[in-house]
Design a protein around this nucleic acid. Structure first.
Lengths: 143, 143
DNA sequence: GTGGCTGCAAAGCTTTTGCATGTTC
DNA sequence: GAACATGCAAAAGCTTTGCAGCCAC
């Protein structure tokens, strides 16, 4: 559940986070981050662009792409792991997982259940940075 | 570890699997399936195409795409869930997971550890068909 | 022989890039 | 004012589509 308090809290820290990373706080960046902070729908770049154009009609799609990529690299946003080719972003960077409906394509959050990187991963000399669990199936509405 | 025995076993069952699904057994389909059955590198469509052209120079990339999509829909192949836009396929359809090196992009298998769909997924009325765990980090060679 | 499959070429999407202009600090 | 960010337009992937001809059954 995404509360209004969480949304406001994320947005409040955004300028400081940018400055700490040596990034300028522009209207475009604030709009992209605010839009993502206020949703649980894991939007694509195109969806972010369309939503933002209502308040900032001059923004270009290329800028949205650049901002999303930058924020992902800096760790302000997560990218959802999926089987297909459209990127989907998430402002919730805490440990949690996703379920994807094979029919309607909706992506929902799933709380992490404390699972750790499996021993076998460590055995192969792989250093885990982060991991996603992605459940595929049918959501409540599409069953 | 992919043994020669496993490879031969997969390939041996391929014609029967096609027939059972009402699909014709063509050279192109056999080549695509055989190539994937013999590798653990999770190739992209382009990589499948390049590899197959050595033995079947007349095959087209569009055909490779059509075959991969068809086999995925029929469950003969898995698609690896990733954060980026290039499809990667896997002929190992048994339960297992993946680790992806953030530096070199290599995708490796990880044996499943018996984890089940988390209770929260069930609570949200989501029926799980399958799930992937994707570990991101650095592989042994890139550390 | 027939229906399904392939190859080709073209189109469609998504994403990236280069550069002149504009904005933040 | 300098360095960085944006917008535009063009290009660069990756993937899909339509259709004529070919092949497995």
């Amino acid at each position: 559940m995404l509360t209004q308090e969480t949304v406001q809290n994320r947005i409040k820290h955004f300028p400081g986070t940018c400055k700490a990373a040596g990034l300028k706080v522009t209207h475009q960046r604030t709009a992209v981050y605010s839009m993502l902070a206020a949703t649980e729908t894991h939007p694509s770049p195109e969806e972010v662009y369309t939503a933002i154009r209502e308040s900032l009609p001059s923004i270009s799609l290329a800028t949205v792409y650049k901002i999303l990529d930058l924020f992902h690299k800096r760790g302000f946003l997560r990218k959802v792991s999926t089987e297909n080719q459209v990127a989907r972003y998430d402002a919730n960077v805490g440990q949690h997982h996703h379920m994807i409906c094979n029919k309607c394509g909706t992506i929902m959050d799933v709380a992490a259940n404390g699972m750790e990187a499996s021993p076998e991963v460590k055995a192969q000399g792989f250093v885990v940075d982060h991991y996603d669990i992605v459940y595929y199936g049918r959501c409540g509405s599409c069953r």
